[in-house]
Amino acid sequence: MPDQTAMRSFGAMGTRFECVLAAFDRPVHRTEAAAMAEEAEFLVRDWHGRLTVFEPASAVSVINDLAFRRPVSLDPELFDLLARCLDYTRATGGRFDITVGALMHAHGFRSGKPGVPDAAWGADLVRLERAGSTVRFLDPGLRIDLGAIAKGFVLDLIREDFNAMGVASALVHGGTSSVLAIGSRPDGSAWRVRAMPDDPDAPVLHLTNEALSVSAPSGRVVASQPHIMDPAAGCPAVDPADAACVAGPSAEVCEAWSTALVIDPSLTADLPDGYRSLIRKGSAWRSSVAASVCSPGSCPSPR
């Protein structure tokens, strides 16, 4: 490892983030490399504070409290993020949907115990007005929850930051399920990331200037139910895949689609251009490309 390598890990967004900055487009002192990693931490913490539903002062909490009563003005970054989320909902046939917030509460995923399912959900209950940069809810029971996309969103921002600062090679992940590879490894080979680190049989993906998102219902379980909410059905997914991985240029897009694919693997055919998937059902991994181990060089096509 060259002397200028920097590493940093920190807790945020309910998980642990780790950064490795391995190479730069110019000579960089180790302290400056460390400072770049600190910038990534600052960025993640900043957005955690804005997007979390667990803190009453967050922007999302404020939206959830007020948006039914009156239009809530949003800054351009947040407005654009919500707009893209609604696009993802349309593209995934409702399998990815940030309006599951109240559903998550109703089914006990947020409070820790199942509640009364008086929740409203559905992207059609969200009105975004670009002219005034406002959001409004059409039902008092609606709540948004960006937990399924927040990590991908901030990873894309980190890439912007790192690119501007001249980071040529880096790997960043949040909880191992959201991964951003900048450039390749210093030796020129692709970053190699096992789809599920705790599964030795899981395929290893080769990432160069790509992101990876892994969704699986094996994490949190409430009342014996998996934690993947199916917004189209209004309840936890009944027969989800065991894991869905999506790799491609944008971490945010990967996040949205991995969430959708774990609920409905048949959506693989609808993946945007430039993205590829791996689905595990039972013990078998099925790839959207021919090989079970994907790499840019070995993938014949993105689908």
Binding site: A59, I63, D65, L66, P71, L78
Partner: peptide
């Protein structure tokens, strides 16, 4: 002091 918001 629940913030009245991000609204104008």
């Amino acid at each position: 002091a629940r913030p009245a918001g991000v609204f104008n």
